[in-house]
């Protein structure tokens, strides 16, 4: 189909232009088709199926007990304190880790931006947490905080509330310490991503503007807030959006570190547990649908809040 375009190109220019446009349109669609099909097969179709199953009482090991229950599963979930507690946990993890990462990531980015020596070394060491398997990072931190085998208790025993020996601090024995350990592992693993996005933003702030403000007598703090940050707005928004949605889906760390004990479950973990461990296909599907809607809502909210045109931000006008 492409050869016709080439031969028809010379004689009638107008006709050729539309022909060309049609062919280009067709070629474009053909080129994106495989990717679109693969993306839809695994997301759109299963979501429709989840929508359907969510209307049933359906348990894998008691198949004879299957019955249509309408929206009752949704009612059960939305009036359940566990669901709201887990949603709260997820939001706490998301907000705390993104806020800390934004600050730490920015400092990392500043250092990397300024560093004139050993750039390869710092880039490598920052990329290792990024590339490492989340499960591995979770294990490393779980062992670090472990009661009998962790270095955290012995290194930080000088802090009030942290003890070693027979009454050692049991990080995974209480809600907030366990949440703390989970958040630390999440922050460690994902700060590099944040800082690299911020570094890219930082490198686009023109040095001239910074120097000009310096000449005007602006302090370091003023330069940061008046010149650097406003010029990095797009980069910060994209980084926050991606990390926030990523943190909201937290699952691996919790699975490895607490298995949801001490009420440290996230929304994703709750959904997983209903479907896979409780065999509750009906309730689990309803949770899946709700989780999907929550993420959609969240994405919409962040985009509206920050007024980012993502297509623009990605460089596609």
């Amino acid at each position: 189909m492409t050869t016709t375009v080439a031969t028809a190109a010379t004689p009638r220019k107008r006709q050729a232009a539309t022909d060309r446009a049609v062919a280009e349109n067709r070629l474009g669609l053909k080129l994106v088709a495989p990717a679109v099909v693969v993306m839809l097969v695994v997301t759109a179709w299963p979501m429709i199926q989840a929508l359907y199953l969510s209307l049933y009482r359906y348990r894998l090991t008691t198949p004879n007990d299957r019955a249509f229950v309408g929206l009752r599963n949704y009612g059960t979930i939305l009036t359940d304190s566990l669901f709201w507690h887990d949603t709260f946990n997820t939001v706490v993890i998301m907000v705390v880790s993104v806020a800390v990462e934004l600050v730490v990531g920015f400092i990392f980015a500043m250092v990397m931006h300024r560093v004139i020596f050993a750039r390869g070394i710092i880039r490598t060491s920052i990329l290792i947490p990024y590339g490492i398997i989340t499960v591995v990072s979770a294990f490393a931190w779980q062992f670090a905080f472990s009661l009998n085998n962790g270095f955290v208790n012995s290194w930080f025993a000088w802090l009030p509330g942290i003890q070693t020996g027979a009454d050692a601090t049991n990080w995974f024995g209480h809600h907030w310490p366990a949440m703390f350990a989970i958040i630390v592992s999440e922050i460690w693993k994902t700060t590099p991503f944040m800082s690299l996005l911020l570094l890219a933003g930082l490198s686009q702030v023109s040095e001239d503007m910074i120097e000009a403000s310096q000449v005007d007598g602006a302090t370091w703090w003023q330069r940061l807030w008046k010149v650097i940050l406003p010029n990095m707005r797009a980069a910060i928004m994209v980084a926050v959006l991606f990390r926030a949605l990523d943190a909201f889906r937290i699952f691996d760390n919790i699975y490895v570190m607490t298995r949801g004990a001490q009420n440290t479950e996230s929304s994703s973990f709750l959904t997983y547990r209903q479907v896979i461990e409780q065999f509750q296909l009906g309730l689990g599907s309803a949770l899946s649908v709700l989780l999907f809607l929550t993420v959609l809502l969240l994405a919409f909210g962040i985009v509206k809040l920050f007024r980012v045109d993502l297509a623009r931000a990605r460089g596609e006008a």
């Binding site: 009998n148 009454d167 049991n170 995974f172």
Partner: peptide
């Protein structure tokens, strides 16, 4: 034991074998 709330067979066994 300090690890009561996370103790499975192995942890409780370690506590038992320890000086306490």
């Amino acid at each position: 034991p300090p690890d009561l709330s996370i103790a499975q067979e192995g942890q409780s066994e370690s506590t038992f074998a320890s000086p306490s």
